[in-house]
Amino acid sequence: MTKSLSTRTIAKKSLSMKSVFALLSAGILMSTLATFTNAEEVATLRNNTPLEVQKEPKVMPLVSNDDIKQKRNYPMQPPVIPHKVRNYQVDLKVNKCMSCHARNRTDESQAPMVSVTHYMNRDGNFLAEISPRRYFCNQCHVPQLDTEELVENTFKDMDTIMKEKQKAQKAQAEH
């Protein structure tokens, strides 16, 4: 209110001043609008909880521990871990994952051996032990939680895309 009043009084004095103020207030309005819409976008995972309020946390979902292998979404995808890895130590001293998944452990553990690429260095030479660049398993492999996705996933694997394409072509040919 005060702003528009002052704008009007000053406007009487000069036209150029008026347009400057109009632009300015429009700018302010737009930027506030932008912040509001932005805030809403960012806040989706907080369900519009005000910034200064701590959101009530959801119940922690359990880690899937059924040991059933999941389909990969694309051939190069690192397979996800079908079991718990709580407190599995992977550091300079030990690698708990490799105590089951290393080549020489798979007879006792009956776990799948890590891909042969994990024994290759960057020049493609095979090493006796896991390559240092593959050492930290959790950089690529993660356990899964028994829960709904927070954000809808629209990923389609190539089989689905190919099938859709074929269907479309077939439909076109029939016309």
């Binding site: 130590q89 001293k93 030990v94 490799m98 105590s99 452990r105």
Partner: peptide
């Protein structure tokens, strides 16, 4: 092994 504490360097321990 290591059920309750961090493990030491396991080089050469059977099964690691």
């Amino acid at each position: 092994k290591g059920i309750a504490h961090e493990l030491p360097d396991m080089e050469g321990v059977e099964g690691w």
